[in-house]
Design a protein around this nucleic acid. Structure first.
Lengths: 355, 355
DNA sequence: TTGTATGCGTTATCAG
DNA sequence: CTGATAACGCATACAA
């Protein structure tokens, strides 16, 4: 069962390869009759149509775009933010008849980085701009779009296009909101910045500047702006940072155990994502504490489920991020290629004035 | 910014193209020193590494596998069955360093079928074996794996490898289970078989054989075996079939409205999927009816959330389906290529003897 | 309307 | 250890 090519058909029929090629791609370039005969013969010879890879090499386009995740793909399918983003992204791609490739390059897995080199795609999108995979993609000269800032505060954004929000400004609003409500003892729940870092550990005020410096230097910690913003917004409040683990509901819950079960728990908690905030709220309820009444909670993202949970949070247009990321990849001609979308502080029942 | 190739580097350095290629792929084929110089020069000239497409053409392998859905991709990311399957599938692919391409070929969208022809992949997996996209994939000569049977009962399975369960046998068990509990007035909730078919319509006993024949002939209705099995298992019960719409919670709920709000509602309802069954249970509760007590409900699949809901259902190993599908694609040498996995009737609180 | 030559970028083969 | 040649399958540019 050897592979049949256009050349074979051409040889057998005594026509040129070009005629065969045209029979498949440009019906107007040959007589209807000849075309019919070519196609018939092709079927008869077991020809299965133009080879996708050869065509891509020749045309220089794959019409395929990759999405790269720092986590395993199971995360991409289960994290609510990721699912909403992916849905919007795929809707645009489908409408434009482009294909989607899913890539996973976990932080620290250098071998997996070769997936970026080997991806036959016309562009790559990623949630976080400074993850190694995105850096490599740019080195490869691929068009890239990322969806959260990941550079030191005040520095120039990284190379590549982006669709993001002003995370720092949003976080400042969160901090100020809590301060206005009178909260001065606050815990900030963050995800683990990189492998090897202690999971679920709390950093006390004295250690804070050191930790923040670490986050700033790690590079690919995309929620750094949120950390800084919350701290700045809170001013001189008594803050601790809890490194809670991966970005998940379970991490938020675990952080709750660390923070709630002590003599003087914080009066307010800020998580850098809604999933962690929701997990923290789970931990509250397990202890008979009512979010809002007994402890204020704030998240980031405004997931679909956050409204029902009464979670005060920063709304960000997740769907628009996904949609625009796809559009930027598909339309190289588009001029606005570094987009900051609006955000909004949504105050719900989970934050109240300190008692 | 013109593209730099190995040829350019070779020319500039006065070495052969092969040496440059070897510098990247086979370090042992040239001196360490020369290799270093080549790589340095490559960077200096802006060479971004071997071109993925060219390499694929040359090697004849893409190391990429597609998953094709009959629905929009948003369904793939939101339907619980799909998410579990996809998770297992991707875990295997990731472990083997293969990439995943997601394709959507909605039923009836013939233009979208070209995506199958244009996919640069080494194989394709799909939930349903007889969907047009899978047929086309086989015509193209690609290895395929599907995960539910989709051929007329008693006929030979379609071409291609599969990982499925014996849906007919499972459905017979469901029918017998209900019959044993004394249920003789039953509604069967099915998803819409094809476009153009009436959405949310109930078929009365007299119309049944006609409808079943339609489903049998439509071809790509993969739950046909379940319909037949439930009917056979129920024997001479008084059955109606409700075509509920797409496979979703909302459809199940809508079907509930049709079936529950009348003088003589069924004493039991079978849905061909858990999501529809769960939706139907929602409809019950909205009317103050308790599933199990007031009306028995059975589903198919045994999703993670079904246990908590107390839903009697057919357990099928969804994760194993996804895992094995990936393994079949990755291991062409494997001999067992048509796998029937075990299923199990899980009786929970949603089915009870008829009052 | 049809055919010819050529190149897309890489790597296997085989010779030196 | 290094290099020349060919081929992977197709489609563009141009000629007939």
């Amino acid at each position: 069962m050897v592979k049949v090519t256009q050349q074979d058909i051409a040889k057998v029929m005594g026509v040129s390869v070009m005629t065969v090629s045209n029979a498949f791609n440009r019906p107007d370039q040959l007589s209807a009759d000849l075309r019919r005969r070519v196609l018939e013969r092709a079927v008869k010879m077991g020809y299965t149509g133009p080879d996708a890879v050869a065509r891509q090499l020749r045309s220089g386009r794959t019409n395929t775009f990759a999405v790269v995740f720092e986590e395993r793909l199971s995360y991409a399918f289960s994290d609510p933010f990721s699912v909403v983003w992916l849905t919007a992204f795929s809707e645009v791609m489908e409408a434009r008849r482009a294909s989607i490739m899913l890539l996973s390059v976990p932080a620290g897995d250098t071998e997996a980085l070769s997936a970026i080199q080997d991806a036959a795609v016309d562009g790559i999108a990623g949630l976080c701009g400074d993850q190694p995979a995105m850096v490599r993609a740019r080195e490869r000269g691929l068009p890239t779009v990322y969806c959260t800032m990941g550079h030191p505060l005040g520095a120039e954004p990284l190379a590549g296009d982006y669709v993001a929000i002003d995370d720092y400004a949003a976080a400042v609003e969160v901090g100020q909101h809590l301060r206005r409500l009178g909260h001065t003892r606050v815990s900030l729940l963050v995800e683990t910045a990189h492998r090897g870092q202690a999971v679920l550990r709390e950093y006390r005020p004295a250690e804070l500047s050191g930790l923040v410096a670490v986050y700033d230097s790690v590079g690919y910690f995309d929620t750094f702006h949120r950390v800084r913003g919350v701290l700045d917004g809170l001013g001189d409040a008594d803050v601790t940072i809890v490194v809670a683990g991966a970005n998940s509901r379970a991490s938020g819950q675990a952080a709750g155990a660390l923070v709630l079960d002590r003599a003087l728990p914080p009066t307010a908690v800020v998580a850098v994502s809604d999933v962690m905030a929701l997990g923290f709220m789970d931990a509250c309820r397990q202890r008979g504490l009512e979010p809002g009444r007994d402890v204020s909670v704030v998240g980031f993202d405004d997931l679909p489920e956050s409204a029902a949970a009464g979670l005060t949070t920063i709304h960000q247009p997740v769907r628009d991020k996904g949609r625009l990321a796809a559009e930027l990849l598909l339309d190289p001609e588009r001029t606005e290629r570094r987009i900051i979308l609006p955000h909004e502080l949504i105050v719900r029942s989970s934050t109240r004035p300190v008692a």
